[in-house]
């Protein structure tokens, strides 16, 4: 019984940790996406618009 509770609690915290890492990855991903968009804009601005 004790062991089962320990496993459940550990799984719970592992889920929380995975969720937090997941959110962190998603947010970083969106900022990388924005950065990529900025670089594309900068490239075309330099070649075509300026």
């Amino acid at each position: 019984m004790m062991k089962l509770n320990y496993i459940r609690i550990a799984a719970f915290f592992k889920n929380i940790w995975n969720g937090m890492l997941g959110i962190f990855h998603e947010v970083i991903f969106t900022y990388l996406f924005i950065l990529a968009g900025f670089l594309v804009c900068l490239l075309w601005w330099g070649i075509l618009i300026k």
């Binding site: 995975n18 969720g19 890492l21 997941g22 959110i23 998603e26 947010v27 969106t30 996406f33 924005i34």
Partner: peptide
Amino acid sequence: EIITVSLMVLGAVNFALHYAVWTGNRREL
């Protein structure tokens, strides 16, 4: 503006992908 862009991108992501990333399958992104 930057924060709204990131929210727009996150909102346009499949909830199944959110689930995969949130449960440890981060390479899926």
